[in-house]
Design a protein around this nucleic acid. Structure first.
Lengths: 337, 337
DNA sequence: CATTCCAACGTAAACGTTTACGTTTTTTGC
DNA sequence: GCAAAAAACGTAAACGTTTACGTTGGAATG
């Protein structure tokens, strides 16, 4: 395994240039020498050194992926899509779990920069100015997944959150619900928080329904425990609701478990709809009706965009993609009609 | 960003050797030149090229992780532990989703070999001879997580599956259950399958209880749907059981959802205990009693072992680690006493 | 003041590739 | 059979680092 192209060349009685030509199937060698070289490679167990290759070719066949949380099924379905498509095209992916920590993120970007990755995909993360500076300095394609930057021109693949939240709320309303609480995740999050609240509001308006701000529960995160706390808040405040729209499946699951403990039957006494359609949604009992983001596909699409940009050399501009969402009807929403 | 150490040297009026010395804080330069060079680096936005470094230092500060399935929370809690510890020590991790596909796995190993990763962690995967050949040729540390090889001397970090399964079954028996089914996952899997069945058997024996082979359900995988099918089989066969031990949380979740649909109350009419203690276990309703593998810690420990091996240069031998398991009592097991 | 020593640097080779350019050999055309 | 063209191959520079070794100059020593 320590053998180099030089060893191969010596063993096959040719120059390293010829070996290189054969390895990269260029022209300029005869069939005879080709098999001679191939045999030498075989016998030595030679593996080309990707570092040396990358150094001279200025590409590493490697991309970096920044993901905030790991406990989150959400991120990993996306990652899985990215990894799949990258691998299909001969790229490796380096995962970086930013843990929503700015310092860490910057450090990761630095490392990815030093490692000369060919591109970067950033999953549901707000792009700070510091990040953007590093990214532009790197001069490689970048794409956002399930996120968007209003400040910087970075292409993205995401669903229309406002629209999706509208659909979810509209769905509940059409099932006869008029008193709908929203477990909103982080309301100060301009990407995954606010637009969904807007959608919730807009759906009410479109049906001529008032919205009661007390019905919108802010929990600064999208986790299971946050969902539990939100549900407890709803119960404690004795909000008079027949349905809940939760900003993530985990939030919904948390709410459901509290409801279960309090003896509230879902969907008989309370309907609930989630967001994301992670694997969790189908595993819950009862299984969770939810608005589906095509997470895996979003990963694929993001990777596709990235490599497209790399091909064309257009590091900054490519067409962003709004992915389709849809409602997956399961067992947690009851019709009041 | 295209600036090299040469540019820095020129700008600071020193040789590249001096710049290198400063970058790697070796000795042999004055404080004065240090700040001069540091300023030049700052102004140029210079980033050292990890490829060139790796080429000459023969290390890449990168490790590879092979994981079978992605849909599986299990794998990712481990990955998360690995990534955390690797990053803390200045390493990047390349993820490779083998998808239980031998071809793919070999291809991944080849790529990791070409990229000259400093070590490889393999998560719950059987080590074929072909893999092992590539691995030894690479001459880097390898460690297994949640797996073991009887054939090859590769250190591992895992729980004692037999013992853990024993504990789970024993727990049920001590709660007064005597008619216990086992949803066994893949029974022909010598690593995660058989030992757990042995544990199940041993617990029965230790209490003088007979085991009915019909009570052991083989479903060739550890997924949610497999759990559903297994539960349906149990019901269809009208097995007279009061409790179920499932070989994974997902299996348990699948079984629970079928039970729910059939109107079987858990734990009132049927107790169930899972395996793994993934996040799923606490999100289920009712929350799942399960035997916990310290997945995140297993990731950490595996990484620790890997880097230890790298330090000591002992590529093959290091102490394997049997991780502690424990029963996490939640809501799905009822005492019959 | 001459010698020694050491800190502070510079030079150049090495890591393992790719590739432009030059050289040799073979093929083609007449 | 010979010139020309094409194919096959070799040489060496380049990619961006690290580092062994050599050089310089000033401080310390006697």
């Amino acid at each position: 395994m320590n053998s180099t192209i030089k060893d191969v060349a010596r063993k096959a009685n040719v120059s390293i240039a010829t070996v290189s030509r054969i390895l990269n199937n260029k022209t300029g060698f005869s069939e005879k020498t080709k098999i001679k070289v191939l045999r030498a490679i075989e016998e030595l167990g030679y593996q080309p050194n990707a570092l040396a290759r990358g150094l001279i070719n200025k590409n590493t066949q490697t991309i970096g992926v920044l993901i905030p949380t790991v406990s989150n099924m959400f991120s990993y379905e996306i990652l899985s899509g990215i990894e799949k498509h990258a691998n299909d095209l001969g790229y490796s992916v380096i995962v970086c779990n930013t843990a929503d920590d700015g310092e860490r993120t910057i450090n990761y970007l630095q490392v990815l920069s030093e490692k000369r990755v060919d591109g970067i995909i950033i999953v549901s993360e707000f792009i700070r100015e510091e990040y953007y500076k590093i990214l532009t300095d790197m001069n490689v394609p970048v794409v956002l997944v399930s996120s968007i930057s209003f400040q910087f021109p970075i292409p993205y693949a995401k669903v229309d959150d406002r629209h999706a939240a509208f659909s979810a709320t509209d769905y509940l309303i059409k099932k006869g619900h008029t008193k709908i609480a929203m477990i909103a995740g982080n309301t100060s999050d301009p990407i995954a928080g606010l637009p969904r609240i807007e959608g919730y509001r807009a759906a009410h308006h479109s049906h001529g329904l008032p919205v009661n701000d007390d019905f919108i529960i802010d929990c600064r995160t999208f986790t299971h425990t946050a969902g539990m706390e939100a549900m407890e808040e709803i119960l404690q405040k004795k909000l008079d609701v027949t349905a809940i729209f939760a900003s993530s499946d985990e939030l919904a699951a948390g709410a459901m478990s509290v409801a279960y403990r309090k003896g509230i039957k879902i969907p008989d006494q309370l309907s609930i709809i989630g967001y994301d359609n992670t694997k969790l949604a189908e595993m819950l009992i009862p299984s969770l009706t939810t608005v589906a983001q095509p997470l895996y596909d979003m990963g694929i699409v993001a990777a596709t965009m990235l490599f497209e940009m790399k091909e064309t050399g257009e590091v900054t501009q490519t067409q962003s993609r709004i992915m389709n969402h849809c409602i997956v009807e399961r067992e947690t929403v009851r019709s009041l009609l």
